[in-house]
Design a protein around this nucleic acid. Structure first.
Lengths: 219, 219
DNA sequence: CGGAAAATGTGCTGTAAAACATTTTTATGA
DNA sequence: TCATAAAAATGTTTTACAGCACATTTTCCG
């Protein structure tokens, strides 16, 4: 369980293990929904998870991507609010769930754990602020390029060192970069014509990453 | 010094006081800049402060508004990054500055203080995520209405119970709601014609708040 | 005070991107 | 393996909004 695990004492580890439930989620299955009261700290063990938020007219924005081993679902609890976003599995995934009151008790007696969450929250907040400017000010090409670069940074490449290790629908790609599905498809085609990518179904090969990063930066 | 103060022991309070510097900032003066290494926890004692981030082509987004007594400038330090946004005074303001290494030492020995920051960060992160959807999906009218409502919620009204207790330029209003200055002016005029507001220079009276909130919600 | 600079207000134009529509391709599972 | 649905692709239309130019007013400060 990565970073958290390493700051826990043997007793604390035991305490967590005793209270950890393992859950499996199917592709596109909801883990929790906007408006729900936060109950569990989730840890993604295997698979991929997206945090999403519904906006005007059912339009969806993907807020964050989660990879193993990362934690989520705790922010709302610490804020004393219901969830403001939902979480769903991108693909078949295995997750652990620890009741948040257990987490609270652990933090209360383990300053290192408190620092872990302070650090995580701080990094996420910085990312969120950056995302605001990226999504509101960049043009379509810049936003899609940004999304592709983020996917590469988040999930990496297959063994060929250029195929994105995530296979998402055009719709998800659109929801990630704040555009319509049509425009995601169109812009993707443009990038292919410009020899930045090779696309085969949901398989995306990035063949000119520097140029893509440039577009993402000044787009 | 509000919430933080109340969780400190007498010794800790003394420690903070000994390390607190008071600074005055003029209207529009920069407090710190994007890219700077975080050095101080800032506390706004008097005045108004905005957190801003520059985007494509120098275009500015106002990320957050700060009122007395609120704390800021600590996120980047906890994340171990340089600042990703700048802070500037809206109007003549008085601020306190506590070196962040002092804050770190205090947190290390005071779990209540740790919880304070976990709580703050969590609330801000939720707000930031909500802002993403508001700014990307709502139309101009909705975004401006939202901004006005946020101003009312943040700084409140004058004694007449309808004049916003903040007097900001059209440009700031535009930067808050992700639009050009021209469009902020135009849309403001529309709202006046619709008898939602009365505007006299920078003095904005909200005379139909329910309708404004409705526009903000479905815009 | 007076002149310059900044802020505000309006109209016009071009265009990026949404909305809509239709066809083609790819999955899915009975 | 065929039927049906879902996803992808592509063309057309519409519109919301940025960009710009310019006039007017207000603010600032030497």
């Amino acid at each position: 369980m990565a970073e958290i695990w390493s700051v826990l004492s043997a007793d604390e580890k035991r305490f967590v293990t005793d209270n950890l439930q393992i859950h499996s989620f199917k592709k596109n299955q909801l883990i929790y929904a906007e408006g729900d009261e936060p109950e569990f700290l989730w840890v993604l063990l295997k698979g991929k998870v997206k945090k999403i938020k519904e906006g005007v007219g059912g339009r969806v924005q993907i807020l964050r991507l989660i990879r193993p081993v990362q934690y989520f679902g705790y922010r709302a609890f610490f804020a004393g609010e219901p969830y403001v976003s939902s979480a769903a599995a991108f693909e078949p995934s295995t997750l652990g769930a620890v009741p948040l009151h257990i987490v609270r008790d652990l933090i209360q007696n383990n300053m290192k754990l408190a620092w872990f969450f302070i650090h995580e929250l701080s990094r996420n907040l910085g990312g969120s602020d950056t995302k605001i400017v990226n999504l509101t000010q960049k043009h379509i090409r810049g936003r899609l390029a940004e999304a592709l670069v983020v996917l590469a940074d988040n999930y990496g490449y297959e063994d060929d060192n250029c195929t994105l290790k995530i296979y998402m629908s055009r719709e998800d790609l659109a929801n990630l970069s704040n555009m319509t599905t049509s425009n995601a498809i169109r812009t993707l085609t443009t990038f292919v014509n410009e020899h930045l990518l090779i696309v085969d179904g949901r398989r995306i090969k990035i063949i000119n990453e520097p140029q893509l990063r440039k577009i993402s930066k000044f787009g």
